[in-house]
Computed example of a mutant assay.
Amino acid sequence: MEPGKAILGSQDGESLVDADSVILCVSYRAEKSLYEACKNKLPEVRLIGDANNVSNIMYAIWDAYEVASTL
């Protein structure tokens, strides 16, 4: 990986795109495998929202607000 880039994967393959932040949204149950794989490889990885604790949208928004307010 390169600083300021993200790898975007699709059926056509992978490509590098410019990115300041990456947000992943998946399913309705806590899924921490991507976080676990990235937390020691990237400088600022946060586990928020349903990945941390499945709840309602207000919980996810509050979690995101807490992270954003510390950046």
Rank of each mutant, 00 (worst) to 15 (best):
V22G: 00
D12V: 04
R46Q: 10
A60W: 00
Y28E: 14
E31G: 07
P3D: 02
V67W: 00
T70C: 11
S15T: 09
S21D: 09
V22F: 01
P3S: 11
I61S: 05
K39W: 06
K41I: 08
I48M: 03
L71A: 11
E66C: 14
T70I: 10
R29Y: 12
G49P: 00
A19E: 02
V67L: 02
A19W: 08
Y65D: 14
V45H: 02
I23F: 12
S15M: 09
D20L: 04
L24C: 12
K39I: 08
G9A: 10
A64I: 03
S33Y: 06
Y35G: 00
V45Q: 00
A6T: 00
E14L: 02
S21K: 10
D50I: 09
D20V: 04
N56Q: 05
C25A: 15
N52A: 13
Q11E: 12
E36D: 12
L24Q: 09
V26G: 09
L71M: 15
V17S: 01
A64D: 01
L24F: 12
M58P: 03
S15I: 08
K39V: 13
I48P: 02
P43V: 06
C38H: 03
A64S: 15
L42I: 09
N56M: 11
D20P: 02
E66R: 14
G9E: 10
A60R: 00
D12Y: 07
A60P: 00
V17L: 05
S33T: 11
I23R: 06
S55L: 12
K32F: 03
E14R: 06
R46L: 06
T70A: 14
N53S: 12
V67I: 05
C38R: 01
S27A: 13
S15E: 13
I23N: 07
I7Y: 10
V26L: 13
R46F: 14
R29H: 11
V54A: 09
D18P: 03
N53K: 15
E66D: 14
L42D: 01
E36A: 05
L71F: 15
N40Y: 08
L42F: 06
V22D: 02
D63P: 01
L16K: 10
A6K: 02
E66Q: 15
Y65S: 07
E14H: 07
A37R: 08
E31N: 07
N53F: 10
W62I: 13
S27M: 10
I48L: 04
V26W: 10
M58V: 13
D18W: 04
K32S: 10
E44N: 12
D12A: 12
S10V: 05
V17A: 08
C25I: 15
E44P: 01
S15V: 05
D50H: 08
V54L: 10
L47N: 00
S21P: 02
Q11C: 07
L34W: 06
D18V: 04
G4A: 00
D20W: 05
C25R: 09
L71S: 11
M1P: 08
I48F: 01
I61F: 09
Y28P: 09
Y65T: 11
L34A: 12
D20H: 05
